[in-house]
Design a protein around this nucleic acid. Structure first.
Length: 546
DNA sequence: CTGACTTGCGCC
DNA sequence: AAAGGGCGCAAGTCAG
């Protein structure tokens, strides 16, 4: 594997390889990269930050097979229990610590006065390689860095390609539910009618139903002693104002989150473009920036429609997190329950609980740390039957309560708790800065719930990264020509992918998605027999999946 | 006026 | 039905 570090030098770029240095003008970089990619020797591009290099390459029609994203790897190594962070020490370490991804579309190839330009990628790369070489868990750590970097490529490619989106279909959907698009600052007709009914029913002529405080006052004045104005609370109330109010909430949500303003801001030339942010969540999940890409309501998914002659292949993993927990804890009994398509049904079949609903609520409680209610009542039975799996999350919770770092399977470390309850926690010090004893205990338990979830959510994110990385390679092999002429990823959400593909390749894509899932399972859990069955749909519209 | 916080709710 | 973990976003609210 030939590693080439890209270094910005003013208007030029250096390509630094073991066998020499090539200097090219910045605008000739895509050509130089393409030439190396097409060469006989596989290349791993090493750069400070994928968001600073790859969009311009993609715009020039150049796709790369692999990279090392020093920013993301630095963030991982800094916190990993598998890494000796002392080996990362350097004058510009704080610069690497602080480096942020860029999301604005820059006219030029590189942003002006970029803090990244004051960092030395060659030296940082050497430090990171030294950390890997010294790690007792070199294999797992290297896999984590490679997977994270590959995710950065996928994210940039998804932003470049965009999710096919039909503004005309979306607009029709909005008009049917809300009425025609109103002038700016006015309520659509349907909302105005509902608002009038709400005011009438509550005897509050001036009420603004968008104001929680205003609404709370009006409800109490009408003799309804509600603690808040959440929809779930309001559903419990018997009053003529409630049906229009709940309907108002639903439509108002659609208007503000995914209405015409959303279309104007985020959909251009038939594509919804937002930025995916790998590593944007402490657990390793991705975040997103712009357009709320990670919470696209089912309600508007009918507007995501594949191009003429193309299809979407939509795939998601059923119950990813419990399956990952079974794998990482080596719990054979839970892996047995995971054998079929429905893990919860497997728990019922094993006689642990009586119903699927109980199995689900019990598992979620184990992952999130519920102690009360129905979920809490399921815990003893789950613990008896799945001691290794439940033991793993319980231990993660206890470690968090002690203020310790926990880690994922591949070695992503959890953050340390904010100063306060954790300081002197074992010393019986007077609670002088963390509030009362009760406050500190509450914070301690909350942090334990966080670390409990961290190990599973974070390892599930690692499985998903391996799945994505492998799928990306398979998709590239399926087609010909530039990225968007081949089957390509257009959406990813924790345990679900959407691939946009020429129709005649849809079945092959479905197969690739399954093979990639199996490969990800082997990569993380070796021969331990835990299944990751997928629901795969080939559809014209995202709304038709599942 | 701006910016920080709160409320509510969409997704996993 | 939610609870219990992780997010982003819009609108309202309130302090400076």
């Amino acid at each position: 594997m030939n590693r080439i570090v890209l270094v910005r030098r003013g208007e030029e770029v250096e390509l630094r390889a073991d066998d020499g240095v090539l200097r090219v003008p910045a605008d000739a970089l895509p050509e130089a990269v393409a030439a190396r990619e097409a060469g006989p020797e596989p290349v791993r591009w090493v750069w400070d930050d994928t968001t600073r290099w790859y969009p311009a390459l993609l715009a020039a029609g150049v796709r790369v097979a692999r990279c090392t994203d020093l920013r993301l790897c630095h963030a991982l190594l800094r916190r990993s229990p598998f890494a000796d962070r002392g080996l990362l020490a350097a004058d510009d370490a704080p610069g690497w610590d602080a480096l942020q991804p860029v999301t604005a579309v820059d006219a030029g190839l590189f942003p002006l006065d970029d803090p990244a330009d004051r960092l030395d990628p060659v030296a940082e790369h050497e430090r990171q390689q030294a950390v890997l070489a010294a790690s007792a868990e070199r294999g797992r750590l290297a896999l984590l860095l490679a997977a994270e970097s590959s995710g950065a490529l996928v994210a940039a490619e998804m932003t470049y390609a965009g999710l096919p989106w039909r503004a005309d279909v979306h607009d029709r959907l909005l008009s049917e539910l809300l009425g025609p698009r109103p002038p700016a600052g006015q309520r659509p007709a349907a909302l105005e009618r509902l608002a009038a009914r709400i005011r009438d029913a509550l005897g509050a002529p001036g009420l603004n139903p968008d104001s929680p405080a205003d609404l709370l006052r009006a409800l109490r004045a009408a003799g309804l002693p509600v603690p808040d104005t959440r929809s779930w609370t309001l559903e419990q109330v018997e009053h003529p104002a409630m049906p229009p109010l709940l309907e108002y909430r639903k439509l108002s949500r659609l208007l503000t989150a995914n209405g015409w303003a959303w279309l104007d801001a985020w959909v251009r030339e038939g594509r919804f473009r937002s930025w995916f942010v790998p590593g944007g969540v402490v657990t390793g999940r991705w975040a997103s920036n712009g357009g709320g890409a990670l919470s696209m309501p089912v309600q508007v998914r009918p507007a995501a429609i594949a191009d003429e002659g193309w299809r979407f292949v939509v795939a998601d993993v059923a119950q990813l997190e419990p399956r990952v927990l079974a794998g990482m804890s080596g719990d054979s009994a839970m892996a047995d329950a995971a054998r079929g398509a429905d893990l919860y049904q497997g728990i019922v079949a094993a006689g642990v609980v009586g119903s699927r609903a109980e199995a689900k609520v019990g598992m979620l409680g184990a992952l999130y740390g519920a102690t009360r209610g129905e979920s809490g009542r399921m815990m003893p039975r789950l613990t008896r039957r799945y001691p290794r799996a439940i033991g793993l999350v319980e231990e993660a919770a206890r470690a968090g309560e002690r203020g310790e770092v926990v880690r994922t399977l591949l070695g992503r470390g959890s953050p340390l708790p904010a100063a306060g309850w954790a300081d002197g926690a074992d010393l019986g010090e007077a609670p002088d800065d963390g509030g009362s004893r009760e406050d500190r205990d509450r914070q301690r338990r909350a942090w334990g719930r966080f670390t409990r979830n961290f190990v599973v959510q974070g390892t599930a994110a690692e499985w998903a990264l391996c799945w994505l990385a492998d799928l990306r390679n398979r998709l590239w092999q399926l087609g010909e020509g530039e990225l968007t002429a081949r089957p390509h990823l257009v959406f990813f959400l924790h345990d679900e992918v959407v691939v946009h593909t020429p129709e005649h390749l849809a079945d092959a894509v479905g197969e690739a998605v399954r093979e990639a899932a199996a490969a990800a399972g082997r990569l993380l859990f070796g021969e331990f027999p835990v299944d990751f069955p997928l629901d795969v749909s080939v559809v014209g519209s995202w709304a038709d999946a599942g």
